[in-house]
Design a protein around this nucleic acid. Sequence first.
DNA 1: AACTTTACTTGCATTTTGCAAGTGCAAACA
DNA 2: TGTTTGCACTTGCAAAATGCAAGTAAAGTT
Lengths: 148, 148
Amino acid sequence: MKKNIIDSIRRSECAVSMALDAVGDKWSLLILRDLMFSDKRTYGELQASEERIATNILASRLVTLEANNLIRKKADPADSRRILYFLTEKGIHLVPVVIELMQWMSKFNPEASACTGNTKAYKKDRVGLYKEIIADLKKLHEVKSGKV
Amino acid sequence: MKKNIIDSIRRSECAVSMALDAVGDKWSLLILRDLMFSDKRTYGELQASEERIATNILASRLVTLEANNLIRKKADPADSRRILYFLTEKGIHLVPVVIELMQWMSKFNPEASACTGNTKAYKKDRVGLYKEIIADLKKLHEVKSGKV
DNA sequence: AACTTTACTTGCATTTTGCAAGTGCAAACA
DNA sequence: TGTTTGCACTTGCAAAATGCAAGTAAAGTT
């Protein structure tokens, strides 16, 4: 298998550095964003995202995201060709990171669009919003992926 | 000049994607982490960080971080060989992203060390902590870099 | 004047990313 | 039942990013 950042040796014990060893590449957080804030679940749907990830890169990222326990695969019971991807709890808890990235860019570049759905509640209660989204995702992903 | 992710074409208008176009590479957020949470200010100090960034990569990242208005350079008045790097307001406002990455890794990997100093207040008031750190950094960086 | 310190640059090897075409298998269709 | 379509990848090769080691230029020190 090809090596990539996620297979790479740990650069340090620093939590920030370790986090970036896992998701600090060009594509991982965009895949996770789609699983968090859109209803994309299959390889084809993820590949069709606006940013047009190359198919081999998507395949490679899905492997390493699963190896790092951020996502989980499940064959679609209705069509065994299809494989559905779900977030794990560890993946779900990256919601605050993705939201903060989004908020940051929105603050400094008005052209940026909020691709994460409703964020009206954000200014009032940022942490409350995190928790709400995380709770919703836990139901959706942990239940449907058969974990619970 | 070498091209890198930061010079790359915008992948989409999505705020998350645009944020990652700016800081979604292997090193940028680690450089910003050092400027946020350590007193490293010079090229040599940044290069000496635990993760041991290659000198050409560091040079390249500093150029693009400055081009993207995340950092600012200033010659050291006491020694004109030395160049001091400071965060801009835009750079300072990535504090929440870095903290959330750190908190995430700490939650899921107990080996990870908090490289951002005191985070005791975190659990009580996450947003309050952000604001406090941002306010401190504004004084330190915007004043010392001569902006204010 | 010679030496050191500091911030880089340069050349080349390795790794990662990107593109286009192809493969294998299950489902749908004729 | 045989063929075609849809879906999830794989493969081969080109381009770009990263990594390593050595070198350079300018300012400060002795």
